[in-house]
Design a protein around this nucleic acid. Structure first.
Lengths: 211, 211
DNA sequence: GTCTATAAGCCGATAGAC
DNA sequence: GTCTATCGGCTTATAGAC
């Protein structure tokens, strides 16, 4: 019994899984705030409150940690887009536009520094096969697939093409706002996205113009 | 006379201005190929065929060199967009689309690694006031102003807004293609740009739908 | 699984000769 | 203006004790 308790307490204070995740959280914070190559493994270990040797027990290399950083970012980021869309009201173009408006509010936070996936691919552009870049590409593809499904369910023609156009505006907004620090561009991107959705809709509805 | 010649020859072989520019060229090549923080000042000096001490005679710091790298990139990059547009044929939406098609051909070159301005802003996202980022923002603004002028000359309504939407698609294409290495996205961006230009045109011509 | 200590080398920037 | 030589510090990663 006593033995059971001490083991249980030991697991509560510093079980391996929790240590690993605290390292990823520390890495995520620093990588996003300062950039991959700017952040040293020492700094990550310090932020996590462990030593470098412990970090290298849980991760093979710094590259491994970069991949884990983006893997952790994938699901929450994707879920946020879905939630923003689900909470939006009005016709489809307006609901798509809402995603960009919500993103603009995010970008106005002082700690916002762009899209972690895009920034990582920019910083590691000389390593096209890096695991982290593959994770980033898969993340964007996931969002694109989800949008394509939404458009297809609405009966729009060429839903895949439209989804790609929206992704281009979304990532363009990330890049442009990071460069000039004017979140207003995100709302402009939302307007463009709504226009494209309307154009795709009207192509399906012969009640419109000449066609 | 003899003196004049030797001075002239000395200027031809290693005048200060030429040394400075060879350093910038070396920095530009390495920064674009491998990223800012990945490239050491030693490597730039080696590439330029001079010593590090000479480099620091011509430039105050590495940051100074990063700014010079993007300053050198501004004019040729802008002129290329203008030339692509000037060489394009057909109605306005098609001519705008051509810019993206030409860019896609660029992106298919094996040494292509995205937009130097955007990649620099991504890598230096923790230093928002960095001179290089201001140069990048000014460059994009220049392209936007040029596009706005083109749209205004064509008599389109809200030319500034449309120019921003095109810039968003352009930079989105840079970011997306860098991430997933599929230049086909650039042509998709061109299609979206043409659609937006057409939408802006039809808003001016009451010969269209209900409005 | 976590620690202390250290390897082996690269970093940006500078001193001082010529 | 360009050189050789070097400073002090930081880098990723590892050795070996506990």
């Amino acid at each position: 019994m006593h033995t059971h308790w001490s083991v249980y307490i030991a697991r509560m204070t510093a079980p391996p899984r929790q240590t690993r995740e605290s390292i990823i959280s520390a890495a995520a914070k620093l990588f996003y705030d300062e950039g991959i190559r700017r952040v040293s493994v020492d700094a990550i270990a310090d932020e996590a409150g462990i030593t470098k040797r412990t970090l290298y027990y849980h991760f093979e290399s710094k590259d491994d940690l970069v991949a884990a950083y983006l893997e952790q970012r994938d699901q929450p980021s994707f879920a946020r887009f879905q939630q923003w869309f689900a909470e939006a009201e009005g016709p489809l173009p307006e609901r798509i536009r809402t995603i960009f408006v919500r993103l603009a509010a995010f970008a106005r936070h002082p700690k916002w520094k762009g899209c972690g996936f895009l920034r990582t691919s920019a910083e590691l552009a000389n390593m096209p096969g890096h695991p982290a870049i593959k994770i980033g590409a898969a993340h964007k593809r996931r969002v694109e697939d989800w949008l394509a499904g939404v458009f297809e369910a609405e009966g729009l023609g060429e839903p895949r093409m439209l989804a790609r156009q929206i992704i281009l505006l979304l990532d363009g907004a990330f890049a442009v706002v990071l460069l000039n620090r004017d979140p207003g561009y995100m709302e402009t991107a939302g307007d463009a996205a709504a226009t494209l959705v309307r154009a795709a809709s009207s192509r399906l509805q012969p009640s419109g113009a000449g066609a």
